[in-house]
């Protein structure tokens, strides 16, 4: 299991305003969904990788993310190759199978679309750590609130994020406890046994999370959560010149991207 790590490292990205990062993040999301030509998405991916280097995030994490993603990527690729309604037939691999909508051919369009899909997901996956691993959670919450996200929603989001490491920690303790009861999670034993073994992990984990959330509710209520007054914040944030430049560039990229797309570029 990969460890979630929310420690904000010092880097050029760390000093940016949370709002700037959120806006840039949103723009990248829109752009990556806007284009369907692999070359454009590779361009975005290259940009995001450069930001990864600037943010000084560990490359090991990139490797881990990719290794988890590999299986999903292969499934997506196969599904797209088989089911995308392409016109340029490349290889005939079977008779047409109308029942599942497969023409019998692997098409060029299918392969291209499959690759584009996988690349999109890669970009989306590695953009998220750029936000959460360079911004302390209170700053992230403040940025959300300043962008007019309702406080309750911002609270739910940041709390969910902040609980991830502790849930992971708990999962590993439960797993150890179950190993001590003679349950093994790795190979050996058939599929049913593996399924049973995962039940032994999930039930204590979920019940524990329920219990924790009840405790959290009491703690929040006793600390005046939802009091009917306007809330003040301990932290405050201001845009610096760099922030303004980055936001301007982001918006420019967004407008440029939309313009390109309207002109008919960026699709295969």
């Amino acid at each position: 299991m990969m460890n979630v790590d929310l420690k904000a490292r010092s880097s050029p990205l760390r000093v940016l305003d949370g709002r700037t990062k959120l806006i840039a993040l949103a723009v990248i999301f829109v752009l990556v969904l806007l284009f369907s030509h692999p070359a454009y998405i590779i361009g975005l991916l290259a940009f995001v990788m450069i930001v990864w280097v600037v943010a000084k995030l560990p490359f090991q994490m990139l490797k881990d993310l990719m290794s988890y993603f590999l299986v999903i990527a292969i499934i997506i690729l196969v599904v797209q190759i088989f089911f995308y309604p392409g016109t340029t037939n490349l290889i005939k691999i079977s008779k047409p199978l109308p029942a599942i909508g497969f023409s019998g051919f692997i098409t060029l369009e299918g392969i291209v679309f499959g690759i584009a899909m996988v690349l999109r997901l890669v970009v989306i996956m590695i953009v998220a750590p750029l936000m959460v691993m360079t911004t302390p959670l209170p700053e992230l919450m403040l940025a959300l609130v300043k962008l007019k996200v309702p406080y309750r929603f911002a609270f739910i989001m940041t709390t969910a994020l902040s609980l991830l490491p502790s849930i992971q920690n708990r999962a590993s303790i439960i797993q150890q406890a179950q190993l001590c009861r003679g349950i093994s999670y790795d190979s050996g034993g058939n599929f049913i046994n593996k399924l049973k073994a995962s039940v032994s992990l999930m039930i204590p984990l979920i019940l524990g999370a329920f219990r924790d959330s009840q405790t959290l509710e009491v703690a929040m209520n006793s600390r005046a959560f939802g009091a009917p007054t306007r809330r003040t914040f301990l932290l405050d944030s201001h845009f610096s010149t760099v922030d303004i430049i980055i936001i301007a560039l982001s918006l420019l990229a967004l407008i440029g991207g939309i313009a390109l797309r309207i002109q008919g570029f960026g699709t295969y």
Partner: peptide
Amino acid sequence: YVFQNPDDMLF
């Protein structure tokens, strides 16, 4: 091995 918190073991 008996863990500190029995709730980690029971399901």
